[in-house]
Design a protein around this nucleic acid. Structure first.
Lengths: 207, 207
DNA sequence: CAAGTTATTGAATGTCCGTTCAATATCCAG
DNA sequence: CTGGATATTGAACGGACATTCAATAACTTG
């Protein structure tokens, strides 16, 4: 019936993601997107409407990937708390190595755009909620394993965990200090389990 | 010898602060600053060099105020942990009431500008370090009071606390959920003290 | 192959931005 | 009162920005 688009929409979004992630929304120009994606302005506008349209689709892809990674954490055989520990260790490693210096696209976007772009804000709030629920499921598993004290609501503990993740997404934009990051992880695990952590990362036995 | 400036530099910076705080750096136009301060472009540029010069002075004033507030926390008669608890309660109140919706100017700036403005980034890192030290002093006091277990480094606990504060500065830009905020505060106190918190906010006695 | 439809191209457009500057006003020293 | 120095004014400027569009190319259907 007509000519078909030549580009791979997913690949275009992935390339645009890198640009928005690195530069932020308002510092990214359409010219940047044109260079990064290889599409001309006309094609970009035909496919996505405008700059914000590109960004919304980028954000959706980013959030979906992020959420899937969390949900997959509960699906291998490992105990949930061990999976959580490994995730935190990975964040620390990525931050110290500099792989994480651009932070989290969603957190960056929330701070940059929440005030003036209600639809971006509402999507990010919904995303946050889903993230918290995914972690709550993981925490409930850890409670069932006996690794986290069962008395407190998994949802509440997940809120605490997410708060720390967002905090680390801020921290990683500034000076990187391994000791501070380790201390944060330690505090998270203590806050979750209610038990002081031993130096080897296992719970310290209660006296 | 010559004509004197007519404006109050401090008042101008305070007015500019509100604009940058609400809109972010790159979304704030010089015209916005002209309207907010009442100064014409020429005077603004004569006094501060350029837009970034205004921002740097705003940031310095903001950070100084912020730091002074923390340092003053240790100077009334109250136990340090009680002062910390009150601070956290105030943050929760301000967030729920919406007084806190624009977040923290310094955190916003770090996420928006760290990548492309090294001098902004370095100032914010130095500020973060001072904030952590101020909290570390407070935590050391609480350890001396016996309210926080003395085994762990006050500096490490302060890093954990600051991480949660920055996390809350992110959270407050999105949906406000009192239960989640209370859960965060609960997790912070558990992480700091190493003891599960009772519903009334006091430490739960260990079994 | 023909007709219809849609994608691609890249130059052009109007707007808004940060910044400058010449003209003017005000102040202080002598 | 006078001269030198600096502050204020607000219009103007060049550049960069998001977006549009007319011309062209490519594909599908019949």
């Amino acid at each position: 019936m007509s000519r078909l688009p030549e580009f791979d929409r997913t690949a275009v979004i992935d390339k645009a993601m890198l640009v928005f992630w690195q530069r932020g929304y308002s510092q990214t120009t359409v010219t940047d997107l044109v260079h990064a994606t290889g599409l001309n302005p006309g094609s970009l506008y035909a496919a996505f409407g405008n700059k914000k349209g590109v960004f919304l689709e980028v954000l959706e892809a980013y959030n979906r990937t992020f959420l899937e990674r969390i949900r997959r954490m509960g699906e291998d055989g490992r105990p949930a708390l061990a999976a959580l520990r490994e995730m935190l260790a990975t964040i620390v490693e990525d931050t110290v190595s500099g792989r994480n210096r651009q932070g989290c696209l969603a957190v960056n976007a929330l701070l940059e755009m929440a005030e003036h772009e209600p639809d971006v804000a509402s999507r990010l709030c919904a995303h946050n909620e889903r993230v918290r629920q995914a972690f709550a499921r993981l925490i409930a598993d850890a409670q069932a394993d006996g690794d986290i004290a069962p008395g407190r609501s998994a949802d509440a503990l997940a809120a605490f965990l997410v708060n720390n993740l967002w905090g680390m997404r801020v921290m990683c934009r500034g000076a990187v200090d391994r000791a501070a990051l380790d201390a944060v992880v330690d505090g998270i695990l203590t806050g979750l389990t209610g038990r002081l952590q031993a130096a080897d990362g296992r719970d310290r036995p209660r006296r």
